[in-house]
Nucleic acid binder design. Structure first.
Lengths: 245, 245
DNA sequence: CGGGTCGTTGACCGTGATCAAGTAACGTGG
DNA sequence: CCACGTTACTTGATCACGGTCAACGACCCG
């Protein structure tokens, strides 16, 4: 099983504050069980009874919504260390669909597991609440991108947002990262077709703003890109001064 | 002052559960102070220190984000009974701007007021948490609209969302409602220009799906409109079964 | 070797942006 | 009470961005 490997959930949360031993033990419980899904699997779909949340152990996934005519909107991409399912906590049935973008390993735990956290681990509770709220602010930024930005700007925003998130769990990451999503999936995320994602990519590359490697992307001129879309990093810093303990 | 007038905050929350007398007293404290702003006022802007939350007493407001070149995206419209500012709770400075769409009255209260609620009123705490999460799901629906819908569909989604929300505080409302927003503001909300909002309106009216009154709109064929955008009402029902007390 | 997926490129088209002119409603001041 | 200026909405003409359709090449895996 997971043995002594470092938990990516703990790594992610540790970025924001030093976890007590007690907190670490509580979190370990959330990662006891493991399930694997292969690329393309639908983990749950709309209207399923949603009794579980999931910690991502490895691999990327995404949450999406469908339109009657087959169009699709990806609303959130999940990375190792993320907790999936918070948004549906107030509803009896799932309001979104979850699919695996590549082969993944998840740790499911019942909603009741949260009750234990909420009741006994105020430090983690406060942090989870903050993360939920932070995600909301990120959604607002995304809304701005989809509502008002050109195709190139949307792609730039998408890439910068990814880099900022990935840096939380991988501090050694510089400016190159793996991107295990098809251009169709990227398009479904930023409201474009695969064709225009391709064109936006080549345009940015031609301008020397990014470079593309085998299965990844390198951010060449981060400052310039950030200025293009007035990018604010919502992940790096968070106000934890009001936390208990 | 507000005398014995019914609080719209209490009205709104009562829609979901029966509030205890103790809960009502706690909520009343949040509505003690009052400030008025006239139409067009900026209540706060990005990077302001955000020490207050606001309960909307009367009038409509909206939260928005700017782009460097002057484009603007409205990300949330606020009605009487709404609490404004939850999203910024995890940040030291405001991440959004707040403006009054018409003359409004707000009840500001310091963030510390929330600590009192969190500590002493578990029923309201659970409800507020649920509302915050519910708002997140609504944002996902909006993301889908901005990412994948045509101009007419966007306007339809916008109107249906408004109606659903307004029905929470005004149960007697049928299908006609006041719309105190300019078409430019509506465009900034759904990612269109004022010109195309106008065209979408006249198109929907010509098809007999809506009708326009002096300062408002009437939903003529709600079922048809809902089918157009696969609309799900996120406001009417909420899972309160897990609440304490 | 063959089939499938993914990315690229070109041609064409359509939706919505942009620019501009005109109208209606309203508030203000003379 | 009217004249004026402002704001909001409408409508038309033109344009451009991104969608759609199609063909092709690269790569992967069976």
């Amino acid at each position: 099983m997971s043995e002594t490997s470092v938990s990516c959930l703990i790594t992610k949360l540790s970025h924001y504050l030093t976890l007590t031993d007690d907190s670490r033990e509580k979190l370990a419980i959330l990662e006891e069980e493991e399930i694997s899904f292969s690329r393309g699997s639908e983990i749950y779909t709309i209207d399923d009874a949603n009794e579980h949340l999931y910690v991502v152990k490895s691999g990327w996934l995404y949450t999406y919504l469908d339109l009657p005519d087959g169009r699709r909107q990806i609303v959130k991409i999940h990375h190792p260390g993320d907790i999936i399912g918070f948004a549906d906590i107030a509803f009896r049935q799932a309001t979104t669909n979850l699919a695996a973008a590549e082969d993944v390993v998840l740790c499911p735990f019942p909603k009741r597991g949260l009750r234990m956290i909420f009741g006994e681990a105020p430090q983690i509770t406060a942090l989870m609440f903050s993360i939920a709220v932070r995600d909301q602010v990120v959604l607002l930024d995304t809304l701005r991108a989809l509502g008002r930005m050109s195709s190139r700007e949307r792609l730039v925003y998408f890439l910068l947002d990814l880099v900022s998130r990935l840096r939380i769990t991988n501090r050694s990451m510089t400016d190159t990262f793996r991107l295990p999503l098809t251009q169709t999936e990227i398009g479904d995320t930023i409201g474009l077709t695969n064709v225009y994602v391709s064109r936006a990519f080549t345009a940015l590359e031609k301008d020397g703003l990014i470079a593309r490697t085998a299965k990844g992307v390198r951010i060449v001129s981060e400052a310039e890109l950030k200025a293009m879309v007035d990018f604010a990093d919502r992940y790096e810093q968070m106000d934890t001064t009001w936390f208990p303990e």
